[in-house]
């Protein structure tokens, strides 16, 4: 149903263009409704909700699309910040785990571990940690290769 109240029509149009969660959308619409009602009432006239006072208040407020675009930009920035905040601890844990594993392997070189890891990383590039794991695995394989003659000799 189309509202004949210009302020409610404006708010419905704005709400449609908002790309935010329902709680934030509800807050934004309630907040802007309060502003527009106050601005229209300040323009005077008994019929401020539907008369020219409401139209003037809306004209001063600006286009719904532009206001929605600015709110959407903030929501997008907030989502990116949340993702970054969630990923940083995982990246730190992964890096520390790989560093610890590499340290252990460096002191106890086994003939197959480095090659096995390199083979695994190349076979499953979609697995997490590839940017870190691939050069590490390559380094370990080279390390093992240099250890091999000694290993063979000690047999």
């Amino acid at each position: 149903m189309v509202s004949r109240d210009p302020i409610e029509s404006y708010l419905a149009d704005l709400a449609r263009q908002l790309r935010v969660g329902w709680r934030r959308r509800r807050r934004i619409v309630a907040e802007l409704r309060g502003h527009l009602h106050e601005a229209a009432a300040a323009e005077g006239g008994a019929d401020w909700r539907s008369g020219p006072a409401a139209e003037r208040a809306l004209a001063r407020f600006g286009a719904a699309a532009e206001t929605a675009r600015q709110f959407n930009q903030i929501a997008r920035a907030r989502r990116h910040a949340l993702v970054r905040r969630a990923l940083v601890p995982w990246a730190a844990v992964l890096t520390l785990t790989l560093a610890a594993t590499a340290t252990v392997w460096a002191f106890q070189p086994s003939p197959n571990t480095g090659a096995a890891l390199a083979k695994h990383v190349q076979a499953c590039p979609h697995r997490g940690g590839v940017p870190v794991a691939r050069p590490l695995a390559e380094a370990l394989r080279r390390n093992r290769a240099t250890c091999e003659p000694a290993t063979e000799a000690s047999r």
Binding site: R60, A64, T67, Q73, I74
Partner: peptide, 15 residues
């Protein structure tokens, strides 16, 4: 300014 532009700014400052 278009009055609508101050609300995104207020929300950003709050965030």
């Amino acid at each position: 300014l278009a009055e609508g532009t101050i609300y995104p700014a207020l929300h950003r400052l709050e965030a």
